[in-house]
């Protein structure tokens, strides 16, 4: 990879600091483009080590109610894939260090054109992709182009991934592994810490890549527990719900939204720095 590998540098730095990283998920354009941009720019200062930016889709079939609603809010306020990439480009004007991973569903990229998307994503300063509905069986038209262009291809490993499948999933995976701690959708239940520890331990037998754990991590306590067993803790729905709590009855961001969400992120990050 010729470009600066922000993902690798970040995990190296975290390792040197002896702690796991906080991965924060927000949906691009939620609740509106400008608020979302400002929020994204504040995340690193609040304690986010990596940013996952959701590419909104009308039918997010792996997401729970909180992120579904965020997708619809963002779409209602005019987000598009093009504007999502613009958000990253704007973010890069003031932040060269924090990795940005785009997460979403294939159809908007398919319509944009995979080759054009990969080119524009690289140009905007995107570091990697997590594609929810592209299992290894279906990912060749995007995965190859993305990896060739220097984007990390982060795959999801789940409680249903058996040994045989694991090999297939880990092939072509780069940057880090995203371990989905429950069989389920985002923002619903939480896994038992013991089960996640076992799964991450088993996963380490098969890969030397950093492992981030997500789905069902809502509190600073859960972030801390996850940080003890994994290299990163992903928080999404809890942040989205805080955004939701700071909307007025018309769905417009209240003045204190940025401050409140930043405070939540700081509190979550605290769990990894004590």
């Amino acid at each position: 990879m010729n470009r600066t590998d922000r993902v690798a540098l970040t995990f190296e730095r975290l390792s040197a600091e002896g702690r796991a990283g906080l991965v924060t998920f927000i949906t691009a354009g939620d609740p509106d483009l400008e608020t979302s941009q400002q929020l994204m720019e504040r995340l690193p200062g609040a304690g986010a080590d990596l940013i996952e930016l959701g590419m909104p889709f009308s039918d997010p079939m792996a997401d729970g109610p909180a992120i579904q609603a965020a997708n619809l809010r963002a779409l209602a306020n005019g987000i598009s894939l093009h504007k999502t990439l613009d958000m990253v480009a704007r973010f890069r004007q003031s932040n060269e260090r924090t990795p940005v991973i785009l997460m979403g569903y294939f159809n908007p990229i398919y319509q944009y054109g995979p080759a054009r998307f990969v080119r524009d994503a690289v140009e905007s300063g995107v570091d990697g992709l997590i594609m929810v509905d592209l299992p290894p069986e279906e990912d060749d038209e995007l995965c190859d182009a993305a990896r060739t262009a220097g984007l990390h291809w982060v795959r999801l490993v789940t409680p249903t991934s058996d040994e045989k499948r694991l090999k297939q999933v880990l092939r072509n995976t780069s940057g880090f592994i995203y371990y989905v701690s429950i069989a389920g959708i985002t923002g619903t239940r939480s896994a038992a810490a013991g089960a996640v520890g076992d799964a991450v331990g088993a996963l380490r037998q098969h890969t030397s890549l950093p492992i981030a754990v997500g789905f069902g991590i809502n509190s600073a306590d859960q972030v801390r527990q996850t940080g003890e067993i994994a290299d990163g803790a992903v928080v999404g729905s809890a942040i989205i719900r805080e955004i939701e709590r700071n909307l007025d009855s018309l769905g417009v961001a209240k003045p204190q939204l940025l401050k409140r969400v930043s405070e939540l992120v700081s509190a979550l990050a605290e769990g990894l720095r004590s």
Partner: peptide, 12 residues
């Protein structure tokens, strides 16, 4: 056609 599903569902 194909199988454009989340990884959790692939084994199923």
């Amino acid at each position: 056609g194909g199988r454009f599903v989340a990884e959790t569902l692939m084994p199923l």
